[in-house]
Nucleic acid binder design. Structure first.
Length: 272
DNA sequence: CAACGTGCATCGACGTTACT
DNA sequence: AGTAACGTCGATGCACGTTG
């Protein structure tokens, strides 16, 4: 399928003759994407917080025996890590590393417990280790916030652009892709009825809208005229309030990212 | 033993269809 | 018009067997 496409004429395709690595190391695209996502989060956080240090739990790669060279130079984890660490330093941040064992010791020192239930979106299952490592650098004594902010990348299907099975008449319907009716998928929108949502797929001159917090499809037949376009987003974000502690500061509403401060202000104003 | 292929289950996204 | 369910597809992870 994709192989066939490679041989087709494609006048939009820009010249690719000058895309050699030129001394840079190769990172597999999927690896790059994952690590780069963390860097982008870091860059966003830096816009609203005075970050000076970054602590990372340095995970040991599963090494293949008798393959020292592979382990060092080719293991996606090793390559990704090296790229990640270098990127952090390039941002002008101090980078510290901790091993998994050190992290556990820190956790014990702070008297914190870790929960293995990763499906529970709680501080103790996802954030303790990060907090303990950060506290080791910053000197914090106990967690003051146990809420969680979830960032989920909005995924679009780019590879398959048509259904595999042709309709009657031999025409394959469009499927996936990054645009719906000329709009970029993932564009944040305010709909007359459904509110803060983002653009998903399309059907018969209508678009699907997905809830900003949950990503759940709320409608499939939204008219474009009913939408106010706000901005393009690459993540959906959701706030999980910590339990057993009241927040002194008015926290953001579920699903409202700090990137869109105007939006959240507007929404909390309405909620009041 | 590592490397690879295969089958299976699961998840989420997408577009269609049936029902109210 | 609104909703729910459905089938298809891509992505992923796992267990298992085969190969060299």
């Amino acid at each position: 399928m994709r192989r066939a496409r490679r041989h087709r004429k494609c006048w939009r395709r820009p010249a690719r003759f000058n895309n050699r690595l030129q001394g840079r190391t190769f990172i597999p695209p999927s690896t790059f994407s994952r690590w780069n996502a963390k860097i982008r989060i870091l860059e966003q956080l830096r816009k609203i917080l005075p970050i000076t240090d970054v602590v990372v739990e340095d995970v040991a790669a599963v090494s293949k025996k008798n393959c020292r060279k592979w382990n060092r130079n080719f293991s996606p984890l090793e390559v990704g890590k090296r790229w990640f660490y270098a990127s952090i330093r390039e941002l002008g941040l101090n980078l510290s590393l901790r091993t998994g064992y050190e992290t556990k010791e820190l956790r014990d020192r702070f008297g914190l417990k870790k929960s293995g239930q990763k499906d529970k979106k709680t501080f103790s299952s996802h954030a303790v280790d990060a907090w303990a490592m950060a506290a080791d650098i910053s000197g914090a004594e106990h967690p003051t916030e146990t809420g969680l902010y979830y960032w989920t990348p909005i995924r679009v299907h780019r590879r398959q652009l048509h259904r595999f099975q042709p309709e009657k008449g031999g025409i394959r319907k469009p499927y996936g892709g990054t645009r719906s009716m000329g709009l970029t998928r993932g564009t944040l929108v305010r709909h007359i009825k459904y509110g803060l949502t983002y653009i998903g797929g399309t059907l018969k001159n209508r678009v699907s809208l997905h809830g900003f917090g949950t990503g759940k499809r709320v409608t499939q037949r939204a008219r474009i005229e009913d939408c106010t376009f706000l901005t393009r987003i690459a993540w959906r974000t959701q706030w999980y309030a910590g339990t057993g502690r009241r927040h002194s500061s008015p926290h953001l509403l579920a699903g409202v990212s700090c990137l869109y401060e105007d939006e959240s202000r507007e929404i909390s104003r309405r909620a009041r």
